[in-house]
Each structure stands twice: as C-alpha cells, then as structure tokens.
Design a binder for these strands. Sequence first.
DNA 1: GTTTTTTGACTGACTGGTCAGTATTATGAC
DNA 2: GTCATAATACTGACCAGTCAGTCAAAAAAC
Lengths: 203, 203
Amino acid sequence: MTLQGKTKRQALTEFREAEILEAARKVFGEHGYANATVDLIAAEAGVAKGTLYLYYESKDAIFWAALTSRFREMHAQARREMQAQASVREKIRAGLRVRFAFLKSDEQFLRMYVTEFGAMCRLQGGPLQALYREAAEYVAEVLQTGVDSGELRPVNTLAAAMALMELVKGMFVMRFAGLPRHDPAFDGEQFVFELFWNGVAAR
Amino acid sequence: MTLQGKTKRQALTEFREAEILEAARKVFGEHGYANATVDLIAAEAGVAKGTLYLYYESKDAIFWAALTSRFREMHAQARREMQAQASVREKIRAGLRVRFAFLKSDEQFLRMYVTEFGAMCRLQGGPLQALYREAAEYVAEVLQTGVDSGELRPVNTLAAAMALMELVKGMFVMRFAGLPRHDPAFDGEQFVFELFWNGVAAR
DNA sequence: GTTTTTTGACTGACTGGTCAGTATTATGAC
DNA sequence: GTCATAATACTGACCAGTCAGTCAAAAAAC
C-alpha cells in the first residue's frame, strides 16, 4: 500500500515533470525565449501556472532544464555510439550520425539549440556552457588519440572539436535561413563529415 | 540660407542616426536583445526616448538597423578584398582576414553577431536572413569558379560557403564558451582556413 | 512669429512570480 | 473496511514591476 501509493505519486510527479519539459520545449521552440510566456507553457502542459513553480523556481530554470536535458541525452548517446567504434574515423562518423538523427527527429529541440544557443552562451558559467565544454572535450579526447596514433595530422584538437560541433549546428541553421533551396538531396551529415575529415585528416 | 540650414540639419540628422546605432550596438551587445531597453539606448545615445522613435519605428527596427549596418559593412569589405585577389585560395583567405579583423575589432558587434544571430534567424524573411544568404551566395560563387577551374574538388558550394561562415562564427563562440583556455596562441583564422581549405580543396 | 525638432513624463498592456485556498492521496485508529 | 486526520499536490486570481510606445509641451531653428 505504502509502496504502491508512493509509486503512484512518484510516477505522477515524474510524468508531470516530463510533460512540463516537453511543453516547454514546444513553446520555447515555437516562440523563442523572450516571447514564450510561463502561462503558455502551463497551458501547453495542462497544469496551472503555480504548478510549474513547484517544479522549477523560475522561467529561466524551466528553459535550462528543457534545453539541457535533451542536450545531455544527445551527448550521452553520441558518446556511447562513439565508444562502440574502433577507429577515430568511425567514432567521428558515429558522433555525427547521432547528432544529426537527434536534431532531425526533434524539431523543437532543434529550434532551441540553433536559435537560442548563442544567446544563452552570453551567461558566463551557464549550465549549457559546461555541457558544451564537456561535449567538446570528449570529442577532442577522441581526436587526440588519432593524432597520437598518426591517424590525424597534428591539430588543436579542442578547437577542431568545437569546429565540428559548430559545423553541425551550421548545417541546421540552413533550414532556418532557407538554404540551400537548390539541392534538396543534399546530405548535410556526409558533407560535414567529409569537410571535417579532409580538414583534419593526415596528409 | 535655406540650403545651409538644411545641410546643417541633415548633418545633424546623420550624426544622430550614427550615434543611435552606435549606442544601440553597445546596449544590445552588452545586455542582449531581451534585456536591452529603449530607455537605455536613448540614454547611451544622449537623446530622449521620443527622438529614437523619430528615427526608427520600433525597438526591433533599431536592433535590425544596428546589426545589419555593420554586417553589411563587413560583407562589403570582404567582397572588395576578395575581388582584389587572383586565386580562389587567396580570395578565401582575404575574406577570412576581413571577417576576423571585423569581429576582433568590434566587441559589441561580435556579441550581437554571435549571440543574437541564431535567435534572429527565427524570423523567416527577416533582414538578416537575406543578408546572410547574399553573403553566402557570393562566397559560393567564388568557390564555384574554383570548382570549374579544377582548383577545388566538386562540392556543394553553397553549403560549403555557409559552413565557412559558421566556422568563423564558431571560432568566436569559443570566446564566450571560454574555450580553449589551453592555448592562448591559437590562431583561429589560420585554423579555419586550413580546416576549410583541406576540407574542400582538390585531392 | 511660425515651423520643425526634441523632450521626457505618462500610459497601459503584459507577464513573472505568489499564495491562500482546494483537491487528492497517504496514514493510522478502530 | 471505513472514517478521521495529516501530508502533499495543485489551482488560478492576483499583484507589482517593467517597458515599448505616445503626445502635449518646450526648445530650437528659421
């Protein structure tokens, strides 16, 4: 009884939390941070405004939770897939595959990631910054093994890792900038891989 | 008299306009769009709030004018320098040199460019989008001549051009993300050039 | 004196956040 | 099992602060 009861509550609570984050991603994704109102998020989540403040202490906190939770998932999955590969080349490819799949499958997250990311970096020490750094550092680590083994030519691995992540973001910026309309069959993932790999691979 | 008067007025008007844009860049750069207030911009520009509305019809219009005027300058100068070069390789190098110099020399514009750019792309058909497209298309044009002459391997030139521009932006994102602290002597411009050039150059 | 430009106090819509009250679920006594 | 009590979760009307935009009056230009 006790256990079942608690489970029921906890389950409900967790469900609510997920629901709120989902709603937040939708509203933030559609309207952007500034134009998204807490009332809208509450309505979308199907809860009262006050309830939101039981789960998160501010609009800002909701935003961070919504963005970072997905970012974290994406990064974790990319890391897993990368670890499962043997060569640096395949690790990079796997990382790209995961990130592209993630961003393609979740329009709202994509919008937040592409359009709000820059603005959020303004906050020195913000949660996203640490995550971004962590993600970049893992990729840099992988690249370093390639440099050490001679698979890649010497390069600033951290800068290269960041460049790669920015390239991924850049490919999706195209969608919002309406580019390129010319070639709908264009494969951004392959393009980024080739550009990056040729750019850093040993000659 | 009339002429002199008008000239004086016009001169004042133009001076005011430049002053307002300069102030706007400072305030938007420091606080971000959402946290920048029209009152702050007016104070910074040394005019009354109402005066701003004689020059621009809204906060949004001020923002656009402030961002696009600099972006336009940067693009125009890059274009000039590129045209002055003979080879595609040197054109690309020149374009990078101009953009890096611009962003390094103007902290406020850099902040707006890096942190607000994404958010602004949200507005389909916004002024920046057209500018961005135009800038990318010019670079793509240059790349195309390289492809045609065999200097570059076949590549989606528009995507490559955008990737290049995103790489530039990415190098400056590092500053805000605090990366990389490891190597202060790191030359972002050279890095981007090599990464890009190796990535798209003929094999 | 008339016209043009500038001013800055004012307005009112908007929204993040609160909290007193209500509803739901868990606990315990019998 | 059932009823009373406690604990927890939820609600939404409300408030206080903010800020884009206005306009009547003042200043400046002519």
